[in-house]
């Protein structure tokens, strides 16, 4: 291919890509091109690339957290706790329940426990 027709082809491919980006009819764009035969072959490829490379959006949570990190926006304690993963919430709830049970048991039976240990220690021969 000569350099002149090469340049025309490049322009046509650019026009095809622009047409595909704006949702235009790339086949009709190719029909108007001086290098219709070759550009027509690329029309399919450009169409496939356009549908292949779809923009992807970040998660809202990620975007908000990164913004807060970048700008040093203060996040309240409750807000930070709320944003923690579910497994952390479950672990915290279990720890709280276990702590409460332990506290209640100590209150009810707490005075007996050390005595039992002492009695066992005395009863055990050296």
């Amino acid at each position: 291919m000569s350099s002149q027709s090469d340049s025309k082809a490049q322009d046509a491919f650019g026009a095809l890509a622009a047409g595909a980006q704006t949702g235009g009819d790339i086949e009709s764009a190719a029909a108007h091109s001086e290098v219709m035969a070759e550009a027509g072959e690329f029309a399919d490829l450009i169409g496939a690339l356009t549908s292949a490379f779809e923009p992807v959006e970040p998660a809202v949570k990620f975007a908000d957290e990164l913004r807060a990190d970048l700008l040093g926006e203060p996040q309240g304690l409750l807000e930070r706790l709320r944003k923690m993963p579910a497994r952390v919430h479950i672990a915290a709830a279990l720890a709280l329940i276990a702590g409460c049970l332990l506290f209640v048991m100590r209150r009810l039976f707490g005075s007996d426990a050390p005595q039992d240990i002492q009695e066992e220690a005395v009863a055990t021969p050296l």
Binding site: V56, E57, P58, A63, R67, L70, L71
Partner: peptide, 10 residues
């Protein structure tokens, strides 16, 4: 950041 986050992420 708001203007370019989506583009850069994508």
């Amino acid at each position: 950041y708001s203007r370019y986050l989506k583009k850069i992420y994508s």
